[in-house]
Design a protein around this nucleic acid. Structure first.
Length: 599
RNA sequence: GGCUCGGUAGCUCAGUUGGAUAGAGCAUCAGCCUUCUAAGCUGAGGGUCAUUGGUUCGAAUCCAAUCCGAGUCACCA
C-alpha cells in the first residue's frame, strides 16, 4: 500500500477512535504533500472536522497527531499550522522503503486482472505520408499501451489502415497520367512520399481544370463535380469496387510502396503493432448489423431505402447508417470493425486514439452499438486528443503547410548532433555509438514534446523555434540518467547493483532534505503510474519524471555520492540514485523514450 | 443557432476528490565548473487564474450568466 493510502487509512481509524460520535461519512479526509515552506512530509487538512466537532483545529490536531504517532509508528513528529496537521514521516520508513524497492525493475507496476484491451492508433490513409499530427497520435497510442500494460492489462496494439477510397484513387489517377510508369526507386523517393506527390499533383491538376471550366462559363459547383480528373478518379473507385483486376493491381502496387515507407518511419520511431486491420477488408462489415437493427426495429428505413437511427432522445440527431443504394457510409464500417475487434480478441476494452474533431462521431458510434445491443459497445473508449496546429493555424495538406513526419524526425536527430558537437561531448564514442545517441536524444525530445501536454488540449507547434533540448524535455531526464550511470561506473557498480552490499544497512544519521525529497518522490511513482493509466494520460508521467530528474539534479549538486561523508551515507545515496535511475528508465520506457548510459 | 471542449506569467504548459503566500520550463537579469557529466545548480523580476455574480471556514478548481477561441452538427472519410 502506498504511503498516502496508509496515512489516509490511519487518519480515518484515528478519528473513528477519538471521535466515535462524529459522522465519518460527512468528513472528507484530505491528505496533501506538505508545502516546502513548512516542516513535515504529509499534511492532514483539519478544517472539515472543525465544523463537525465544534472544536478548535489545534485541539483536534493535537489529539490526532498524538494518536497517529503512538499507534502507527509511521511518524516522528507533527506540527499544527493554522488548521493543517503537518506530519513528519520517520526516517526509518524511508530507509526500509528503499531497501525493499531500490532495484526492483517493476516497481510501480500492477499485476492486475489481465483485462484485454485493444489500443488502436496511427490509422493512416495510404494516399500521403505521415505528418506531425500523426506523430502525436502514434506516440499517444504507444504510450497509452505501455502504461495500460504496466497497470495490469493485456494490451493489443492495433493499426487500422485506410487503404481504400476516393483519396487513394486520386493518387492513382495522377500517377497514371503523369508518372510515366515510374516507381519510387526510379526517383529515389520513399514510397509514401512518392505516392503523396501524386496526391498533390492530383489537386494541382484538379484546381486547374476547375478554373478552365469556370472560364468557359460553368458554375463553380458544377465544375468541381465535372472536372475530368475527378470523374476519372471516381471511375477508378467504381472499378475498384467492381474488383477490376487492372485497377486492383495498380492499387495494390501503390499501397505496397506506401506500406514500405510507413514501415520505415515506424521502425525509425521504434513503434510497432500487434495487429493490422485493412479497411479494404473491413469496409463491407456492418451491413448485416444494420440489417439486424432494422429487423429489431431499432433502426428505420426511409422510402428511398436508406437506413437511419433516431438519436434525438439523447439530444443528438437522426443519423444515416446506410445509403439508399445500399452502400456503406463511414460509420457503417466502423460498426462492423468494432464488432470484429471484439470478436477477434474478446475485448474488455477497445480504445480509439482519434483526434477530437471526431468526438461526435465516436459518441454516436458507441451509442448506436449500445442501441443495437452489441456487447462491444460498453468497452469502447475514445482517447480523444487535440490537434497539433501551427502558429498560422491548422495544417492543411492542400496548402502545403503540413510538417512532414520524416522531415521532423531527421531535423530532431540533426539538432541532437549539432548540440552534442557544440557542447564538445562526442569524445569516447564510436561513430556507431554517436549515431545511436543522436537518435536517442532526437527522438526522445520529439516524443516528450508531444506527450508532455495533456492529450485533450490542442497544441501549437512553432517550427521556427523548433524543439528545445533544455528544461522540460526528455534530454533533461536523459542527462540525469547518464549522470547516475556515470557515478555507478566510477564506483564499478552495475546499473542494478545486487542487494548483498546493502543487506546489513542500518542508518544512524538523519537524512538530509535533498535525500528525503528524492525518496518521497520515488515512493509516489506507483500512484502516478496508476493515475496515468486510469486517465489514459501519459503527460502525467512526463511531469512526474521531469520533477524527479529535477530533484536528482539538486541532490547531485548538494551531495557527493562517491565522496560521501562516510560509508553509511554513500550506501544510502547509491540506493537512492539507483532507484531514481530505475524509475526514470521505467517511466520513459513506457512512453517509448530511451535513456542513454552516457551522453 | 444546438452540442462539446478550451481561456492560468511575455511564450509553452502544470495545478488531484475545493485547502496554506497559484507553480515549472523557455525568454530576461544576477551568481556557481581545480571536486561523481555546467545538456546542470542557486537566486531575482514577471499574475485582475477571461469577466461578473453565487455556494462556504476556504474557489484557478463547484454553480449561473456573459465575453473570446476551437471543434462538430454530410447520402465525406
Amino acid at each position: 500500500m502506498t504511503l498516502l493510502a496508509q496515512i489516509k487509512l490511519a487518519a480515518a481509524e484515528a478519528l473513528q477512535h477519538l471521535y466515535p460520535d462524529m459522522e465519518m461519512a460527512n468528513a472528507v479526509i484530505t491528505i496533501n504533500q506538505t508545502k516546502p515552506e513548512f516542516t513535515g512530509d504529509y499534511t492532514v487538512v483539519l478544517f472539515p472536522f472543525v465544523k463537525l466537532l465544534r472544536q478548535k483545529p489545534e485541539a483536534i490536531g493535537n489529539k490526532l497527531g498524538d494518536y497517529l504517532i503512538e499507534k502507527t509508528g509511521l511518524f516522528s513528529g507533527y506540527e499544527i499550522v493554522s488548521g493543517f496537521l503537518n506530519l513528519t514521516v520517520r526516517d526509518s520508513y524511508w530507509i526500509s522503503f528503499l531497501l525493499n524497492h531500490f532495484n526492483d525493475t517493476r516497481f510501480g507496476e500492477k499485476r492486475g486482472t489481465q483485462r484485454r484491451v485493444m489500443v488502436e492508433y496511427s490509422s493512416p490513409n495510404t494516399n500521403k505520408p505521415l505528418h506531425f499530427g500523426h506523430l502525436r497520435n502514434i506516440f499517444l497510442g504507444y504510450a497509452a499501451s505501455g502504461i495500460l500494460k504496466a497497470t495490469g492489462n493485456q494490451v493489443i496494439k492495433a493499426n487500422l489502415i485506410n487503404d481504400r477510397g476516393i483519396h487513394i484513387c486520386k493518387s492513382m489517377i495522377a500517377w497514371q497520367r503523369y508518372a510515366g510508369n515510374t516507381g519510387p526507386e526510379d526517383t529515389n523517393t520513399k514510397g509514401d512520399h512518392f505516392v503523396g506527390d501524386y496526391y498533390v499533383k492530383f489537386n494541382t491538376a484538379y484546381k486547374k481544370e476547375i478554373a478552365e471550366l469556370i472560364a468557359n462559363g460553368m458554375t463553380e459547383a458544377t465544375a468541381e463535380k465535372e472536372a475530368p480528373i475527378m470523374t476519372e478518379a471516381q471511375e477508378l473507385l467504381r472499378k475498384w469496387e467492381a474488383n477490376d483486376s487492372e485497377v486492383r493491381n495498380l492499387w495494390q502496387k501503390m499501397n505496397n510502396w506506401v506500406y514500405k515507407g510507413f514501415d520505415e518511419t515506424y521502425d525509425k520511431l521504434g513503434i510497432d503493432f500487434d495487429k493490422v486491420y485493412l479497411e479494404s477488408e473491413t469496409y463491407l462489415l456492418g451491413k448485416n448489423i444494420v440489417a439486424e437493427g432494422v429487423a429489431k426495429g431499432v433502426l428505420y428505413k426511409k422510402e428511398d431505402g436508406s437506413v437511419w437511427i433516431d438519436l434525438t432522445n439523447e439530444g443528438l440527431d437522426h443519423k444515416l447508417l446506410l445509403r439508399g443504394d445500399g452502400t456503406s457510409v463511414y460509420i457503417t464500417q466502423d460498426l462492423g470493425t468494432a464488432k470484429l475487434k471484439y470478436d477477434d480478441y474478446k475485448l474488455d476494452e477497445s480504445i480509439y486514439v482519434i483526434a477530437d474533431e471526431q468526438n461526435y462521431h465516436m459518441q454516436v458510434l458507441k451509442l448506436i452499438l449500445k442501441r443495437l445491443g452489441e456487447p462491444c459497445s460498453d468497452g469502447i473508449y475514445h482517447l480523444s486528443y487535440g490537434m497539433v496546429e501551427l502558429p498560422s493555424g491548422r495544417m492543411k495538406s492542400r496548402e502545403g503547410t503540413v510538417v512532414d513526419a520524416d522531415d521532423m524526425i531527421d531535423e530532431m536527430i540533426s539538432l541532437a548532433r549539432q548540440q552534442t558537437e557544440q557542447a564538445g561531448k562526442t569524445e569516447g564514442f564510436t561513430i556507431e555509438e554517436l549515431a545511436t545517441l543522436y537518435n536517442t536524444i532526437g527522438l526522445g525530445a520529439l516524443k516528450f514534446y508531444l506527450l508532455r501536454v495533456d492529450p485533450k488540449k490542442k497544441m501549437i507547434f512553432n517550427p521556427q523555434e523548433s524543439i528545445d533540448l533544455h528544461g522540460f524535455t526528455a534530454t533533461f531526464i536523459q542527462y540525469a540518467h547518464a549522470r547516475i550511470c556515470s557515478i555507478l561506473r566510477r564506483e564499478e557498480l552495475p546499473i542494478l547493483p545486487p542487494t548483498p552490499r546493502f543487506q546489513g544497512f542500518t542508518h544512524s544519521q538523519d537524512v538530509t532534505k535533498a535525500e528525503k525529497d528524492l525518496m518521497v518522490a520515488l515512493e509516489q511513482y506507483p500512484n502516478v503510474l496508476d493515475e496515468a493509466g486510469a486517465t489514459y494520460n501519459p503527460s502525467l508521467l512526463c511531469n512526474y519524471t521531469f520533477h524527479l530528474a529535477q530533484l536528482f539534479n539538486s541532490f547531485y549538486d548538494e551531495h557527493s555520492i562517491s565522496k560521501a561523508e562516510n560509508e553509511e551515507k554513500k550506501n544510502l545515496r547509491i540506493m537512492i540514485i539507483v532507484m531514481t535511475a530505475q524509475i526514470l528508465r521505467h517511466s520513459m520506457n513506457l512512453l517509448g523514450i530511451n535513456l542513454p548510459d552516457k551522453m
